[in-house]
Design a protein around this nucleic acid. Structure first.
Lengths: 199, 199, 199, 199
DNA sequence: CATGAATGAGGCTTCATTCAT
DNA sequence: GATGAATGAAGCCTCATTCAT
């Protein structure tokens, strides 16, 4: 008397991840129920457990996958030759683009950090630090070459990251400003903000 | 962890608000149960309802009170005479200070927006817009006087707000940098970022 | 919209214990669902948790209470002056009576031992050992006075306990044999079994 | 803990029976899940159904097989010529030996009776009665020949069975007492318990 | 014969809320 | 104003079982 309708086969796992991403983004991890998730996927609640081991594990999985992709693609984006300003432009461009395109992954990776188990939390925070350190390194290099002038590279980096990340809060794909324009505006604002006093 | 002797008299309501703030900040609105809240206050669950009408109402109450205070104090902070740069400095100083001092209120006013009922949500978003518009106005005034040069004042403002707000994520009261230093760094970075190209 | 029917007041806790005893006896701890239990009591499932903290705790509570009563009443039953035979008769009489009257408590205290958490398990086993040691002491005393003759008092005691405890498996209050008769039969059989060879 | 390489071929059915015996003995029928069972065997849950028709049927199968073997081997053990005392000794020896060697089968055949479907239950109880009747017959024969003196042969038999069966609760193969010694002790205790008053 | 994915029922437990005392 | 006990819904998760591949 089993199985009459619903999702089948190995695609179900991917459907669950997709639906989980959507619902966690919209309602938050705590507020998303597995009932909702199952309904979104079109299967019974119990069937979820053929694909995930735990609600918590689904969250971790989504965030970890995102962080891994983020780090990998950052590597690619920064695999260029150029002075610190050029690298900083590349960073801004990459960060904004990624945060617009992967808006939901990015959002939950920030906002649901506190919903992670302690161990999972540590893993993700470590990955996030690796990401931040790439920007800090660029700023430090720029300071060494007197192209930037900042009191504290770490604080400056945090400010830049917050500014750029904020984009995914308000950016609308078909809104007034194109992605390229936003990148241009923020590149300008960021680089100006770091210019040595006399320039 | 909780008070062992129960809270009494008219102070209980305030104790509930305080405990609610703490717990929502730490665990999130969805994840905080009224049991936890009552335990933190040192009363029984049922007794909460002598002071709040609903869990949702407690949340709204906390956020609204915060937004009202924020707007009121911003008015005071900007009630000075000066050019746009001076006003912008005042804004940065106020925003950073407030976001450091009222870290928890600020955080939940952002992160729990989505937990608000639609009506409540609209109310709060309207207040937030009033706040943002004060910064946008400063930037627009600065552009008119050619003290700033930005393609889009709204986008610039969003960037600045995100950068400054990010402070409450990493700032530690007794950390490496004092509040004044952070304000100085960010004022510099923000104003530099808006300078006309030639300056 | 709360509370319209069902059990009220402080009597509910006792009703839950009683119903729990009945259902665990009948179906076993694992097989008894809290749905059943709540239905038997006449309340909603969730309401159980105003009175018990856990299904496991209910089980432990029932067994511990039984063991405590058992030990206490054994003390009373053996608080007499007499030779080992007299004491043994008193033990048999007490054990059989208690195991007939508290048939259900006795049964689950044996059969659900394995359903106890490790810690709870240890507690109960320790109590059971104290009970057994009372019988062993009687046998040892009897051997010292040459009124009994057994190769191994512990093994003999285990045999006696098993025999007597078996009563609660088949005894029926209004059956062919009265309680007194059963006690008489078993006293005879037990004491004969321990007689020195020559007697 | 489980076999890492899956069980194959016609031996799987036997592996399931063996694992079922072990797990039901350890956790009880209700508490054993088919997931556990499959893991113990080293196959997937669904694969169990190629070998058993139902969890309930597995239980019945194990118990029935045990009872059949028990009755068959009792027949062999009592296929001797001798007076009632000799036969009783043979019974005690057989019962204790079997209950020590087949400890787990014996245990679940008692403790999981209540987990059997009504029909299955009746079948097993009938077999158990056949077993008990063999002992009762010996006692009755002994009484007729004035070698035993008991008020009620059935009750005496129940007591003896309980005593002997208790052995499988505490007997340890390499413990203080050998199997032979235990048999000797209990034979002595049982037969003494039935001696006519004057002997 | 084994697998993996599905089902629907049900497991224990917690939830926000109500209300008589 | 506080309490404790009630409600009904919902939480996550596991269950035995089925069946296409």
């Amino acid at each position: 008397m089993a199985r009459t309708v619903g999702s089948h086969g190995p695609k179900t796992t991917e459907a669950i991840r997709k639906a989980g991403l959507k619902l966690i983004y919209r309602h938050g991890y705590e507020a998303m129920s597995l009932r909702q998730l199952a309904a979104e996927v079109g299967i019974q609640v119990g069937s979820l457990y053929n694909h995930i081991s735990t609600k918590q594990d689904l969250l971790f999985d989504l965030i970890r996958a995102h962080m891994e992709a983020l780090l990998l693609e950052l590597d690619r984006a920064l695999a260029i030759v150029g002075d610190p300003v050029t690298l900083l432009r590349a960073f801004v461009s990459f960060h904004v683009t990624y945060h617009i395109v992967r808006k939901r992954e990015v959002f939950i990776a920030y906002s649901e950090l506190r919903s992670l188990d302690p161990n999972h939390y540590e893993d993700i925070v470590a990955m996030r630090r690796r990401y931040e350190s790439r920007l800090i390194a660029i700023l430090e290099d720029g300071c060494r070459h007197h192209m930037f002038e900042v009191q504290d590279c770490r604080v400056a980096a945090y400010g830049i990251l917050a500014m750029l990340t904020g984009v995914c809060t308000w950016f609308r794909p078909n809104g007034r400003l194109s992605r390229e324009t936003v990148i241009e505006i923020y590149s300008q604002q960021v680089i100006s903000g770091l210019r040595p006093a006399g320039d």
